[in-house]
Amino acid sequence: MDLVTKVHREHVEILVTGTIKTIANAQAIKEAIRKTHEQHPDAIINLMIKDSFIITSSVIGFLIKSIKMDKMNLQVNVGCEELYTMLDDMNLVEIMNVRKAYTCAKV
């Protein structure tokens, strides 16, 4: 998994490529979001999960907490239909501000 943060005028993109599967991957995502929010507290944070068809439960919990309790302006864009469907089946699309951005190739 790779992670790149891009700062724009009104928003910040956190681009995640590759599969999110380890504790270290989850920690890196959470730390990138925390750091971005500290440095740009009023910016919209767009978490772009480009390739992963899975997401760890700790990242899901962190995203829900960040949006609902910490009031971060956070949007999640998923590139794999399989991940979007999983989040939809769990009734998390609205809660986590999930949007489709299908670019992921089926393997």
Rank of each mutant, 00 (worst) to 15 (best):
V98R: 10
I45N: 04
Q27P: 00
G61Q: 13
V98G: 10
N46L: 11
L63F: 12
R99Q: 15
D89L: 03
K6Y: 00
I29T: 07
A101N: 13
I49N: 04
K6S: 01
G18Q: 05
L74Q: 03
Q39W: 05
L83G: 08
E81H: 14
S52C: 12
C104R: 15
V16H: 01
V107R: 03
I67M: 06
N73Y: 12
V7T: 13
T17F: 01
I64P: 00
I33W: 02
A105V: 13
K6T: 06
H40N: 12
G18A: 11
K65P: 00
V12D: 00
L63N: 13
A43M: 09
A28S: 14
M86A: 10
K30H: 05
V107N: 04
V4E: 04
T19A: 11
A32D: 10
V78A: 03
R9G: 05
I55W: 04
A101L: 09
T36A: 15
S58F: 01
A105K: 15
K100L: 04
S52H: 04
N25W: 02
L47N: 08
K106I: 15
L47S: 07
K68N: 09
L74K: 02
T22W: 01
V59W: 09
I23L: 05
G79R: 00
E94L: 07
E10L: 12
D88K: 10
T103K: 14
M48V: 14
Q75C: 05
N25S: 13
R34P: 00
V98W: 09
I45T: 02
M72T: 07
K6Q: 02
R34Q: 09
R99W: 10
R34S: 10
E82A: 09
I95L: 15
I67C: 05
A32H: 06
A32W: 07
N77G: 01
L3D: 05
E31M: 07
M90S: 10
V98I: 15
I95Q: 14
S58Y: 00
G61Y: 07
R9L: 06
M69D: 13
I29H: 06
K30I: 15
E31W: 02
P41C: 09
L87N: 08
A32T: 07
I49K: 03
L3Y: 02
I67A: 07
I64C: 04
K50N: 11
L87P: 09
L47W: 06
N46I: 04
T17H: 01
F62Q: 04
D2G: 14
C104E: 14
N25P: 08
V78N: 04
K30N: 14
A101S: 11
N46P: 01
I55V: 15
S66C: 12
P41Y: 12
A26G: 11
K50M: 12
N46W: 11
M48P: 00
R34W: 02
E10K: 07
A26D: 11
N46V: 04
A26M: 03
G61F: 06
I20Q: 00
L3I: 15
K30D: 03
N73K: 15
D70L: 10
V4Y: 00
L87V: 07
L83M: 10
A24C: 04
D2K: 13
